[in-house]
Design a protein around this nucleic acid. Structure first.
Length: 516
RNA sequence: GGCGUGUUGGUCAAUCGGUUAAGACGCCUCCCUUUCACGGAGGAAUGACGGGUUCGAUUCCCGUACAUGCUACCA
């Protein structure tokens, strides 16, 4: 009999949600769903100094946007509430005490200055000494001090922290689902602080206590945590919970596209792509960091792209729905090495999703960008509504231009001429081959169009062919100029469809407006 | 510095000892299209290095190099 699978994403609310964080969420989510388990969101807000207002809500909003919502969270509640570590503060002391009683942890009364001094005294500039077996004897703690003095210090209310007492010369083994067996020498790990002077636990204590209390069975986290894993393994053991320890999986890092190293917010700013899932506004500075959502990504595309960054199903398929990902995902196929983030590939995913989306869905997604464009060109979109911008019209438009769009804002760039007269006309594109004959053709044809009995793509094209022939011109001579007149540039769907869509009056107006 | 982890084209990556070392993104060429895309066809481009093990190593082992992470009363 196996326990019900329970996984958790445990971010600290200190700012924007990094793409690597979203991927961790995704792998948690996929794993939980695949095994019929629970996905828990636990907020690790034990560092009061780094707490950022609004970050928790922002994280939950990001998960909602991505469609990766937890089963239990501070917002939703659940059988293991509360899900905010600051609200669980009272729980941790008991376990710290238990560790002290069993001799696996001790009180330390050192000030930050004393510790700093020790690091320099017993170490050097590029290798500061650790608080461990070799140095703890020189410090003020319940191991080095006589018992009565410790009691006195405690009674006087001297600030203290609780540190784990790392054993000497012990090999600590950990079986990682991705990396296999990893070993550490306990002598090389320092006596990490478990309980801070303010009574809050550090990550090390909190993650173990909460994973135990919340009955977490599988723990996924970034590779940067691997070096502190031996501390956690020991804690599980010392607390007597070893058989309940979750299976670990340390996920590979997401690297910057150029050079090496972890992808940071700065790299995004520097290279011009987002790193956060959604726009993040720093409450202190007001500085806004762009997100994938605001950049014009569809959440499904974003998630799909992330899934394949560090994991590969072993088949050629690349486009997966969330349900398909749940079916296909396997932790064993997650890569060991970090992956460089490629924004071009990310855009390709979005392009694919736009390409395959139905027009109704796209019309909804494109709507805000079209409205925005109209607003910026000074046209009241409401007034325009009644004339041209019906939902039906929008759907036809997006269907016509979707192959040309990679990000959602492209819909305005690729379709503005369906709604407004082009502001700029690329006359340079036709100037060289322009002549009186062509000018004459267009003014004659514009007049003839007035009298065209039916207004549709075929009729307009036939009329154009006919009049070009009469004027002694080839069709190819007039196609590009016509496009420039209607669209403003060398792009867009077929010209006659455009003429059909924008209507007779507007078509004639645009033709007449251009003189070279 | 110490410790951990990693290393297949520019990038994402398949291969679980035997392949002409897949595929995708990007790039280039051509076709389709009297625009731009989409689509189609093709092309350039890869096993860090050195030792083993083996009939045979990209694949297993060891070393080297390089990269990266950690080394806080931050997570």
């Amino acid at each position: 009999m196996s326990k019900k699978v329970r996984v958790r994403f445990a971010p600290s609310p200190t700012g924007g949600l990094h793409l690597g964080g979203v991927r961790t969420v995704l792998y948690n989510y996929l794993f939980a769903r695949q095994h019929g388990g629970d996905f828990v969101l636990r907020i690790e807000d034990t560092d009061q100094a780094r707490f950022v207002e609004g970050a928790e809500q922002y994280i939950m909003d990001c998960l909602k946007w991505c469609g990766l919502e937890p089963d239990e969270s501070p917002e939703k509640g659940g059988p293991f509430a509360p899900y905010r570590q600051s609200e669980r503060k009272h729980l941790y002391y008991e376990y710290a005490q238990k560790l002290i009683d069993s001799g696996h942890a001790y009180y330390a009364f050192d000030t930050t200055e004393e510790i700093e001094k020790m690091r320099n005294t017993y170490g050097n500039d590029d290798h500061k000494a650790q608080y461990d077996e070799t140095t703890r004897g020189y410090m003020r703690n319940s191991i080095s001090l006589p018992p009565d003095e410790v009691v006195k210090l405690l009674e006087n209310g001297t600030p203290y922290v609780v540190r784990i007492k790392m054993p000497v010369n012990q090999t600590i083994r950990l079986t990682d689902m991705i990396r296999g067996e990893v070993t550490f020498d306990s002598s090389l790990v320092d006596d990490k602080v478990l309980l801070k002077a303010d009574g809050m636990p550090t990550y090390h204590l909190a993650v173990v206590v909460d994973d135990y209390l919340m009955q977490i069975t599988h723990a996924f986290r970034g590779e940067e945590w691997l070096p502190s894993a031996p501390v956690h393994v020991l804690l599980w053991e010392y607390l007597g919970w070893k058989e309940h320890m979750p299976l670990w999986a340390h996920l590979p890092l997401i690297l910057k596209p150029d050079g090496n190293g972890k992808l940071s917010k700065r790299d995004g700013d520097r290279l011009g792509f987002p790193v956060f899932a959604m726009n993040w506004t720093d409450p202190k500075t007001g500085e806004i960091t762009k997100g994938f959502r605001e950049m014009g990504f569809m959440p499904q595309a974003f998630v799909n792209m992330l899934a394949l960054l560090g994991w590969n199903p072993g088949v050629e398929k690349e486009i997966f729905t969330l349900d398909e990902l749940i079916m296909a995902f396997s932790i064993e196929r997650v890569h060991k090495g970090g992956a460089k983030f490629d924004f071009e590939k990310a855009k390709w995913f979005n392009n694919q999703y736009i390409h395959h989306a139905d027009n109704e869905t796209l019309a909804k997604l494109a709507m805000p960008y079209i409205e925005d464009g109209l607003k910026n060109t000074g046209i009241n979109s409401r007034a325009y509504d009644s004339r041209l911008m019906t939902y039906d019209y929008l759907q036809r438009v997006v269907g016509l231009v979707k192959d040309r769009c990679t990000l959602l804002p492209d819909f305005w760039a690729q379709a503005h001429f369906f709604f407004v007269t082009p502001e700029t006309i690329d006359v340079a594109a036709i100037k060289d081959k322009w002549n009186d004959q062509k000018q004459q053709f267009f003014s004659n044809w514009a007049a003839a169009l007035e009298a065209l009995p039916e207004w549709n793509e075929q009729a307009i094209e036939a009329s154009c062919n006919e009049h070009a022939l009469q004027a002694g011109l080839k069709k190819g001579d007039v196609m590009l100029p016509l496009r420039i007149m209607l669209v403003g540039g060398k792009y867009g769907p077929g010209v006659f469809i455009i003429a059909d869509m924008i209507g007779k009056e507007e078509t004639i107006k645009r033709i007449k407006a251009v003189h070279l």
